[in-house]
């Protein structure tokens, strides 16, 4: 489900079925990597939208954790851990982070939730059709990851 009123109405009724939260991590920078960070954000946005469509009934896609690349990474991890604690106290069992920013890979151990890092596709080089197929393919591979994680809990 998306973070929109319509979906949340359904969420209130079927809360016990939703135990997973997906938080996309969106980097922003106006330095040399302005295009890269924008592309990462665009790519992860498309990918998570598609992911949400597949697993609408089991996960909530939050609007995303947006940060500046310049920010201190330890502080960012702390912020994210606070998000995590809040979500766990709300009875969510699984937290997934999805990002293209490889800096998070270094901080993976410090987070309790699962970090999914995917290199961003060069979206500018793709036309609409092939973009959709490529993102679909990537999402398909992610699906297994989610299903396995859910299975382990049983």
């Amino acid at each position: 489900m998306k973070w929109i009123q319509e979906d949340m109405e359904m969420f209130v009724k079927a809360r016990e079925y939703l135990d997973t939260v997906v938080i996309p991590l969106y980097p922003i920078s106006f330095g040399e990597d302005v295009k890269q960070t924008a592309n990462m954000t665009e790519f992860i946005n498309l990918l998570t939208t598609q992911l949400e469509r597949q697993f609408k009934g089991r996960l909530i896609l939050l609007p995303g954790f947006t940060y500046f690349k310049k920010q201190d990474s330890d502080k960012l991890v702390n912020d994210l851990l606070q998000w995590e604690n809040t979500l766990i106290s709300e009875d969510f069992k699984h937290v997934f982070y999805v990002t293209s920013d490889s800096d998070w890979k270094l901080k993976e151990q410090e987070l309790t939730g699962s970090l999914i890092w995917l290199p961003a596709l060069p979206l500018e080089l793709l036309d609409g059709k092939s973009r959709n197929t490529m993102i679909d393919d990537q999402v398909k591979q992610l699906l297994n990851l989610f299903v396995k994680r859910w299975h382990n809990e049983l």
Partner: peptide, 8 residues
């Protein structure tokens, strides 16, 4: 679309 909560 699943008739339960809308997954695929």
């Amino acid at each position: 679309v699943c008739k339960h909560l809308g997954c695929t």
